[in-house]
């Protein structure tokens, strides 16, 4: 069986400095995969290689069996900053990727509008970003990401700017939405809880240079993750990951 997205032995250097080394990960259709690691372990560099902004020194990126190394426009991207444009309503912000692709504005709005309900954004269509809370803005940003490409989404610490309570709520929402839209995602985070809670598999990354230390499969089905973080099972995962990160610190 071929994977949806695969990186094969990717190495990236800036000058003589090796940022990431020999990274191979694989993601299947509809899977949620996390890259967990401390800052500076090269997570974002790997993302930039996958999205084609950087061309890796060696290795390749395979999407649906095709080599897309160094080319942009195949996978969508979402950052910690929501980057919603303050002068556009939410529906226009969200529909922007469609408009850029040449779809007439009205049609783009209609198409985007169909998904507002599903993303828990109903009623915000005509509002401006500054009228929404941080959590709602990230929802809108994810919807925009999805409308750009329902292929593979790369999420770079999308929820790390939110406060703990909002974060808890948005995690539940995220699992919900992913269940419905079945988007394949790679999720960067430095939050161990978030990684365990939101993933089918977690890749532990350590630096420097950035390497994949281990791959951990979270066995509990995504549909049964309610209050998962209060269970012993969760704590076992967490302990294992913390030891791994600790061992590789020096």
């Amino acid at each position: 069986m071929t994977h949806k997205l695969e990186t094969k032995n990717i190495t990236m250097k800036f000058g003589d400095e090796v940022i990431i080394q020999d990274i191979s990960i694989a993601v299947d259709q509809g899977e949620l995969v996390s890259l967990l690691g401390v800052s500076g372990s090269g997570k974002t560099t790997l993302f930039n290689c996958i999205s084609g902004i950087y061309h890796p020194v060696s290795g390749s990126v395979i999407l649906d069996g095709k080599d897309i190394t160094g080319t942009t426009g195949h996978v969508s991207y979402m950052l910690q900053k929501d980057l919603l444009l303050p002068y556009k309503t939410i529906e226009d912000n969200v529909a922007l990727p469609l408009v850029i692709r040449g779809m007439p504005k009205k049609q783009a709005r209609l198409k985007a509008g169909e998904l507002f309900e599903e993303f828990g954004l109903a009623g915000t269509e005509k509002k401006y970003p500054k009228q929404l809370s941080g959590g709602m803005r990230q929802r809108a940003a994810l919807l925009r990401t999805y409308l750009f490409s329902d292929n593979v989404a790369l999420l770079d610490e999308p929820f790390s700017a939110l406060d703990t309570i909002t974060k808890g709520k948005i995690h539940n929402w995220y699992l919900d939405v992913m269940e419905k839209i079945k988007l394949t995602t790679v999720f960067i985070t430095h939050d161990i809880n978030e990684a365990i809670l939101l993933s089918d598999r977690v890749y532990i990354m350590t630096g420097k240079p950035g390497q994949i230390q281990k791959e951990i499969r979270i066995k509990r089905p995504r549909g049964e993750r309610h209050e998962f973080d209060l269970t012993n099972e969760f704590m076992e995962y967490k302990r294992e990951i913390m030891h791994l990160l600790e061992e590789n610190r020096s």
């Binding site: 009228q131 809370s133 909002t166």
Partner: peptide, 15 residues
């Protein structure tokens, strides 16, 4: 967009 109420209290959409 400059005129709309900013995220002060009740008008703000809460998560």
């Amino acid at each position: 967009w400059e005129r709309v109420e900013t995220e002060t209290g009740d008008r703000r959409e809460n998560l």
